[in-house]
């Protein structure tokens, strides 16, 4: 008990202790902003990996750590597409995952937004052209926001999400 308390006091608050992110490379369109308006104060996203190398997943998991603490912006990770407002898709869409991606899109209730996270989801990255890759995410489902990077840093993901929802991208510390 005292051990835990001592540890917590010693550690203090670490939230926000990360280098500032560069401004988003791609500004979200006004259409995407309109679609994101219902989720201004609360956004539940479901992560869908359609063939990523798992670096993007690691950075998404990092968003939930005490340093980035994504929940303070009202963003949380849903356990099922049926509870989600947004799909965050990573990786090129592999032949084996194509059907699953389309299913998950159908299962997500409207209104919804789709975010392509990482270079592979946007243009297939190093896996472009392979016999096992059917194409980028937007070939199969409509994409509203693209967050490039291989992988994008957590601070950059936060900034892009904030820019989408508030139009500024400035209030992530």
């Amino acid at each position: 008990m005292f051990r835990i308390l001592k540890k917590s006091l010693k550690t203090g608050v670490v939230t926000g202790q990360h280098p500032a992110a560069a401004p988003p490379e791609e500004i979200s369109t006004s259409e995407a902003k309109d679609k994101a308006r219902p989720f201004l104060s609360s956004l539940a996203f479901r992560a869908v990996d359609t063939g990523s190398c798992n670096a993007c997943e690691m950075e998404m998991n990092a968003l939930a750590n005490p340093v980035y603490d994504i929940e303070r912006f009202g963003i949380h990770i849903a356990a099922s597409p049926r509870h989600a407002d947004a799909l965050v898709v990573t990786g090129p869409v592999t032949v084996n995952m194509e059907r699953a991606l389309k299913d998950v899109y159908q299962q997500t209730p409207d209104p919804k937004i789709v975010i392509a996270l990482g270079d592979c989801a946007i243009n297939c990255g190093v896996f472009k052209g392979s016999y096992a890759v059917t194409g980028p995410v937007e070939k199969h489902i409509p994409v509203d926001l693209r967050i490039p990077g291989c992988p994008p840093r957590p601070a950059e993901i936060l900034k892009a999400l904030q820019e989408l929802r508030t139009g500024t991208g400035s209030n992530t510390d």
């Binding site: 990996d49 359609t50 063939g51 990523s52 190398c53 798992n54 670096a55 993007c56 997943e57 690691m58 990786g91 090129p92 592999t94 032949v95 084996n96 995952m97 990255g125 190093v126 896996f127 052209g129 392979s130 016999y131 096992a132 890759v133 291989c150 992988p151």
Partner: peptide
């Protein structure tokens, strides 16, 4: 998540395939 990595390697030269190897498992 089968992406055809081993076949993709065959499209590279020996020197240039390092970025692909880095992305086998991130």
């Amino acid at each position: 998540t089968h992406r055809g990595v081993e076949k993709l390697f065959e499209q590279h030269t020996l020197i240039a395939a390092v970025p692909l190897a880095e992305r086998v498992s991130g």
